[in-house]
């Protein structure tokens, strides 16, 4: 028996919007730790890891570890039917081949049940080693989204370089090239508007903008994004989910042949 009640049901709606274009089918794992997902895109270039900790749910019952295979587009369709202020409960019986999403309006005057078929998905859980990053950039998530969108109208790849000067996002394409430099800026009143750069070593890596743009669909989940870079390692683009956990996107770099 599994029953997870999330008062902020719109978090789950936002999570689905953030991952459904990157990953088609995925197993959601439920354990005493929380509700999680790890999945790669079909080209095995990017990986998404989601964790919603059990403490973040108003009610969390998970009698045994379960893995539920879901088509993310279908799940998103169902969650779109929940109101933004609705309380969402995820329910599944042991051994059942369906999952039920229950939506309750805040004043309890409307209750809806949406039952979705589960699927068998063969997926490998990859071991993600702990890494020391050469540079960690924390910036407003809307700013990062804007940069990725702007640069993708010029080129297909982005070079992210971190030096003492700041973080530089560069692209080049047939019509020309573009560079956006963001400097550390902690003087603004609101911490969510600041940019901080923690650099141990300068680093410069190239990534496909198509994936970066896909990651920015998680922007509504968090006002800030953390970009962790190390040469020869996938970049980690992390959006913290307040009081609940995180969504992390890992993207393999492009390298010179």
């Amino acid at each position: 028996m599994l029953e997870l009640r999330l008062v902020q049901g719109n978090l789950l709606k936002k999570v689905l919007e953030a991952v459904k274009d990157l990953v088609t089918d995925a197993n959601f794992d439920c354990s005493s730790t929380g509700f999680s997902l790890q999945a790669m895109d079909s080209s095995h270039v990017a990986l998404v890891a989601l964790l919603l900790r059990s403490e973040g749910f108003e009610h969390y019952r998970c009698d045994r570890n379960v893995s539920m295979g879901m088509n993310l587009n279908n799940m998103a369709k169902m969650l779109k039917c929940a109101g933004n202020d609705d309380i969402v409960t995820i329910k599944a019986d042991d051994g059942s081949d369906t999952v039920t999403f229950m939506f309750e309006s805040p004043n309890q005057d409307k209750i809806a049940d949406f039952e979705m078929k589960l699927m068998d998905i063969d997926s490998e859980h990859l071991g993600i080693p702990e890494a020391e990053y050469h540079a960690i950039v924390r910036m407003p998530s809307s700013e990062f989204a804007r940069i990725c969108k702007d640069l993708s109208s010029i080129g297909d790849t982005v070079v992210i370089s971190v030096t003492k000067e700041g973080v530089k996002f560069s692209t080049r394409g047939d019509i020309g090239n573009a560079n956006v430099v963001c400097r550390q800026n902690t003087t603004v009143d609101k911490p969510e508007e600041s940019t901080t750069i923690e650099m141990h070593e300068p680093v410069s890596l190239t990534f496909a903008l198509r994936y970066m743009n896909s990651f920015t669909k998680a922007t509504p989940l968090s006002s800030t994004v953390t970009i962790s870079l190390s040469s020869e390692l996938p970049v980690v683009v992390e959006y913290k989910i307040a009081e609940m956990g995180y969504i992390r996107f890992y993207l393999a770099p492009k390298i010179e042949d």
């Binding site: 990859l126 080693p129 790849t157 390692l233 393999a252 770099p253 390298i255 042949d257």
Partner: peptide
């Protein structure tokens, strides 16, 4: 020429 690395070349399969 640039080549796209796979995420599988960084993270271990179980």
């Amino acid at each position: 020429m640039q080549r796209q690395k796979s995420i599988l070349s960084f993270f271990q399969r179980p």
